[in-house]
């Protein structure tokens, strides 16, 4: 195995062009596990740790451009207001040590349905900035996940950053695991209210071959909110609407039975999480309730 250590982003792109099968490694929290378990034996590892700009983020007027290697702990600490859904999701990633190393680029590169960032990225409407020596492009998150642990990157492309709109409304993230910390998702759910566009976006993790949105549920909810004028009146969401939203979220999943949980439980749990997180975000939108569960850093 060859270990490539480009000193700059341009060098990294050149290396990736020369060795398209090279596996990029940043925090190593996923790649190294794969290598240690011998699940993967790439010819080349492409170390991105010398490229400092990947660990930076820029906050514009409306958007955040989040470097692929910004560690989860920094997202939690520094972007809680701008990207509340992703900050909450980051808090559920593994342990403090792993959160200090891992970043969103790794989650996207691996594209495991169990990656904790995906539901928040889907709900937030992210775009993935991919680049190669041929040029740069933005891949909408909706088009990014193409199969089990597969994504839309071309072999010579690297993930440089993720672009996300700053939250224009409340966002939430919930994940079920059978332990109260440091646990891989049995299933997960993200929701973001976008009052500026009067839309709702969602993301489901670990309950389908890829991370998915619950589009029918989103459309149903947006329509229900619109029809009842709730965006303006900020009145409570009728329980029947919340219930139907939960049913539609559960229906959007396509889970399996595995050692972590049953398909039936996953559907059930997604419904519960959908109903609760809708409640939390809507209450916050109405001006009640706390911003989120107080999740001081553990």
């Amino acid at each position: 195995m060859e270990f490539l250590r480009p000193a700059s982003w341009q060098e990294a792109l050149a290396a990736k062009a020369e060795h398209p099968s090279a596996v990029p490694i940043a925090g190593g929290t996923d790649v190294m596990v794969e290598i240690n378990f011998d699940h993967r034996r790439p010819d080349h590892l492409l170390d991105l740790n010398r490229i400092g700009e990947l660990e930076e983020w820029e906050t514009g007027e409306d958007t955040v451009r989040l470097g692929a290697s910004v560690p989860y702990s920094k997202i939690m600490a520094g972007l809680r207001r701008e990207l509340p859904g992703l900050a909450l999701a980051s808090h559920t990633v593994a342990s403090p040590q792993i959160r200090n190393r891992g970043g969103v680029g790794g989650n996207l590169g691996t594209a495991s349905p169990a990656g904790d960032a995906h539901p928040a990225l889907l709900a937030g409407g992210a775009a993935v900035e991919a680049e190669s020596v041929r040029g740069s492009r933005l891949i909408p998150i909706d088009d990014f996940y193409t199969g089990v642990k597969r994504n839309a990157l071309a072999p010579d492309e690297l993930i440089r950053a993720v672009h996300l709109k700053k939250a224009s409304g409340p966002q939430q993230f919930s994940k079920v695991g059978t332990r109260n910390a440091m646990v891989i998702a049995v299933c997960a759910f993200g929701i973001a209210l976008h009052p500026d566009t009067r839309t709702v976006r969602t993301g489901i993790g670990s309950a389908a071959p890829t991370p998915v949105r619950a589009r029918t549920a989103e459309e149903f909810l947006a329509a229900a909110l619109d029809e009842a004028g709730l965006w303006e009146s900020r009145k409570a969401v009728p329980p029947a609407v919340a219930k139907q939203f939960a049913v539609l979220v559960a229906a959007a999943a396509n889970p399996i039975d595995d050692v972590r949980g049953t398909a039936a439980y996953r559907r059930h749990a997604l419904g519960v999480m959908a109903r609760r997180t809708l409640g939390w975000t809507w209450e916050q939108y109405r001006g009640h309730g706390s911003e989120q569960g107080s999740t001081s850093c553990a």
Binding site: A181, R276, S294, S296, A298
Partner: peptide
Amino acid sequence: ETTEGADVRALPGGLSNTTHGEG
């Protein structure tokens, strides 16, 4: 329950933020 809301670490699900007391 704290003055700043629910401390999820003291709830089922913990940091995974699955409940703020519901259920």
